[in-house]
């Protein structure tokens, strides 16, 4: 994973509650065996009508929001299915962070693993950002080391678990970190009770 230290760019407001991962990337697009190429199908059912035509009233289809780096949304974003295709699709479409009052737990985990930063801010702050984002040219800056979001001349702090923050800043590979504890894992395995099931 590439280190993520600072995110700067414009925002797109998608102010709905409970945006679930079935919405972020519908199931008919989960059949790829790669991690890439999901961007064009992001929010497919909202972005295209039943004839497959682009819906011009959908916020992300408006050309002014095309290059947005940060998505602003409502509570419980990314709830539901565990599909990691959801953060892959958001990244593929150019998003580097999502700001919402709350997130589905699995989505949030999956996002960090891919360098997409899910940021929790209180509802009032999210609404304020959405208002600012009504101007598609308005810019936002996210500083991961400081834990701050700056937009519209105002800076707001957010919380990141220090270890998660450390991994993001340094682009650390989780598996490599865990494999440093190889000896502990082997010791644990040696002591596992014999009644535990195995397929061997």
């Amino acid at each position: 994973m590439e280190p993520v230290q600072r995110i700067e760019g414009t925002m797109a407001p998608l102010m709905r509650s409970h945006v679930d991962t079935d919405q972020i990337i519908p199931k008919q697009f989960l059949k790829r065996v790669e991690r890439t190429g999901f961007g064009p199908f992001l929010f497919y059912d909202w972005a295209y009508d039943h004839e497959g035509e682009l819906r011009t009233d959908f916020v992300l289809n408006q050309p002014e929001y095309e290059n947005a780096a940060v998505l602003i949304s409502g509570p419980n974003f990314g709830s539901g299915s565990s599909r990691e295709h959801a953060p892959w699709a958001l990244l593929d479409a150019g998003f580097q962070a999502v700001i919402a009052p709350s997130f589905g737990d699995i989505f949030r985990n999956n996002s960090f693993k891919n360098g997409l930063v899910p940021i929790i801010l209180p509802e009032e702050d999210v609404s304020r950002l959405a208002e600012i984002a009504a101007d598609p040219a308005a810019r936002i800056a996210i500083d991961i080391a400081q834990g701050t979001v700056t937009a519209g001349g105002q800076t707001t702090a957010f919380y990141l678990d220090p270890f998660v923050q450390h991994c993001l800043l340094n682009g650390l590979d989780d598996i490599a970190i865990t494999l440093e504890s190889e000896a502990d894992i082997s010791t644990f395995e040696g002591a596992r009770p014999g009644f535990k099931p195995s397929l061997a």
Binding site: R35, S82, R83, E84, P87, I106, N109, N110, K113, N114, D174, I175, I177, T178, L179, S181, I185, E189
Partner: peptide, 18 residues
């Protein structure tokens, strides 16, 4: 509990999960 694909890879490689 359910996990994402990066975590699937992590469990395949280490049989553990942080």
């Amino acid at each position: 509990f359910g996990i994402g694909t990066s975590e699937v890879e992590h469990v395949l490689a280490t049989q553990t999960l942080p």
